[in-house]
């Protein structure tokens, strides 16, 4: 598959799931403080620059298509969106809820436009045909990994892999995907600190769901710190 797709009218754009710089965590590869733009803003000549995520090449010039920050790494100009929907990419770690099932497939809500499919062959255990609900019922939570993403963004998830499992205890909080970078911190420092402070097991999934498990007091304290962090980010607003 090519790294960009040509649309009907000849414009070139990168679908979200193939973009190099579109980390679900957004600010993970944040560099210098950069310019804030609105959709439609001109970003200069395209000569010598590639159009990255949120950028279109039109008539020899680059144009922002998203509201966000400009990232210029020398060869590619991309927009790091301020707010964005979660779009799954292969190998993303996600937390999902079982939303429905058939005889041999679970449908998992992973907070993306489409439910992901979890076939029984990639599920947590073997059951007879028709026994999906006896292994995992509607409303149960799972930690899984995105295995495949179609061009239409519908995806297949797997539970085969280290640490992937059904979530039976603790609490799941939702964090705006673009704030995940702040939560994790440089080299995972902030997250490590949070885990130590609260003595909880904390798993931050790429779709913005955060699983916190441990003693009750730890869970409550982790929740408070998460909330403080996200309020903080909101009050600082876009200048963060």
């Amino acid at each position: 598959m090519s790294a960009s797709m040509v649309m009907k009218d000849g414009r070139v754009a990168r679908p979200d799931n193939m973009s190099v710089s579109n980390d679900a965590g957004g600010p993970r590869n944040q560099g210098r403080a950069s310019l804030l733009v609105a959709p439609g803003e001109d970003l200069g000549e395209s000569e010598g620059h590639e159009a990255g995520h949120g950028v279109l090449e039109m008539d020899g010039r680059l144009r922002a298509t998203k509201h966000g920050r400009v990232n210029d790494n020398g060869t590619e100009i991309a927009i790091e969106p301020l707010r964005t929907a979660y779009i799954p990419r292969p190998s993303d770690l996600v937390i999902g809820y079982v939303e429905g099932c058939t005889n041999n497939i679970w449908f998992i809500d992973i907070g993306a436009p489409f439910n992901a499919i979890l076939p029984m062959s990639l599920g947590p255990g073997k059951a007879a045909f028709g026994g999906t609900r006896s292994i995992m019922d509607i409303g149960e939570a799972v930690l899984c990994r995105v295995q495949e993403v179609e061009e239409t963004h519908s995806s297949v998830v797997t539970m085969k892999g280290m640490g992937l499992r059904k979530i039976r205890s603790g609490n799941i909080e939702q964090v705006d995907p673009h704030l995940l970078g702040r939560l994790i911190g440089k080299g995972g420092k902030a997250l490590r600190q949070l885990k130590e402070d609260t003595d909880c097991r904390i798993i931050v999934a790429d779709n913005g769901r955060v699983w916190i498990d441990g003693e009750f007091d730890g869970i409550v304290s982790a929740r408070d710190q998460l909330k403080a962090m996200s309020d903080d980010a909101k009050s600082i607003g876009v200048d963060a």
Binding site: A38, G54, R63, K66, H67, G68, L82, R83, T84
Partner: peptide
């Protein structure tokens, strides 16, 4: 609102 939601668009 579309721009605020992060929906890609060529212009507002």
């Amino acid at each position: 609102a579309l721009a605020h939601a992060g929906i890609p668009m060529t212009d507002m």
